[in-house]
Design a protein around this nucleic acid. Structure first.
Lengths: 210, 210
DNA sequence: ATGACAATTATTCAAGCGTATAATTCAACC
DNA sequence: GGTTGAATTATACGCTTGAATAATTGTCAT
């Protein structure tokens, strides 16, 4: 048996690699398959480093969830960009319903983490943070859109509209991520944009981004 | 150490108890926490019985997923009942968005199973069966509703409408199951019924069941 | 140069896992 | 009323797990 070559890396790189390896392991083998040995192997290090940088496996998994949540948020934020509210909302819908967000592995990861939200208080806290941001962003887009149409935003109405649009997007995201082959016939992005327009009482083609 | 009293039960009772105990364990401790010992303890039997009735733990978990899927389907089917299509669809929405379907533990279970659909072929097959039935039922309700309005159902349109309504319901189901306290201000059933009416191009109050 | 120290690897440990098998219990049959 | 056999319990086994600790390596200040 030969000793693994000793190789130093900055702590931030090690943490990043371990988190990424954890996400890959969970996506491939499930939460139970993300063992310290498997994660370390995939990250190209020794299991002891997990203890060094995350103290326990539990904290590593929490960090991985936080990373996934942040990555998904960032992907959408980046896609939304600047411009008219109707255009930003259309881009918001597009980003939510195309790769990399729509992806079987991403859905597996999301489901694995969601399943532990009711079990683990730490995971629940991470979930709360990420999800609230997601909802608030949709709400602010719809708020801006209302202003753009020359109407006075009624907070309660904006709130409920954002819940409806978010639910529609979430549901489509799940269905298309989990069984893309079942919905081949539908072009999900324009379809979702039209549905959202209906929910908001807009003309069907007012939420296109292309 | 005292020997557990020997108590015979019909095989069907044993299977039912073990499946129920498995679901409880997964809801409480996650998939990884549903060990043969914990499940047997909760079912009031000895771990050996799992092997006897399900051969492996894997098959027990698959049976538990099938049971959850069947239970959810049955709860909705029972609630839909008979009557006018608009009434049945309204009841379909109500049943999907109230207890026992809307429940934190049910969501935990569902997420745990979904997270293993991409990993385990057996789970994928069970998922496919259950989910297809769910989609087909919504589709047939919308089909009947179209006829009821005196229109000729266009298959592609019915199909896409059912996808949209299903997505809306799924999304609301998840949001309300996972954080009911965040949406206290909204009466989800009439809200969902109005949203579905919008998606289908109906008048807002045409999908009420009460 | 070298000694201290942090980073990394290697080893060890007790606990818990799924499974396999052996030992018991009870009811039904002849 | 023994006997057989299925249902149940109990025990044993090999393996994997997360964690703890020991051994090693390289860097950097002095």
């Amino acid at each position: 048996m030969t000793r693994r070559p000793y190789h130093r890396e900055p702590g931030s790189v090690r943490q990043h690699d371990l988190i990424e390896a954890t996400l890959e392991c969970i996506a491939e083998f499930g939460l139970a398959g993300a063992t310290v040995r498997e994660v370390a192997l995939k990250a190209g290090v020794t299991p002891g480093l997990i203890r060094r940088y995350f103290h326990t496996k539990e904290r590593l998994v929490e960090a991985a969830y936080a990373k996934l949540s942040a990555d998904m948020t960032a992907a959408i934020n980046e896609a939304v960009g600047e411009g008219a509210a109707c255009l930003r909302l259309a881009r918001f819908i597009r980003a939510s319903l195309t790769a990399p967000l729509v992806d079987a592995k991403t859905l597996s990861l999301w489901a694995a983490f969601i399943s532990s939200v009711n079990i683990d208080a730490g995971m629940a806290a991470i979930h709360r943070d990420g999800y609230r941001g997601f909802r608030k962003r949709a709400e602010s887009l719809i708020h801006d859109l209302t202003l753009e149409r020359g109407l006075a935003p009624i907070p309660a109405l904006v709130h409920s509209q954002s819940i409806a649009v978010n639910a529609l997007i979430d549901g489509l995201w799940i269905e298309f991520s989990i069984s893309p082959e079942e919905f081949k016939a539908i072009d999900v992005v324009p379809f979702a944009q039209e549905c959202a327009a209906r929910l908001l009482g807009l003309e069907p083609n007012s939420l296109k981004d292309k």
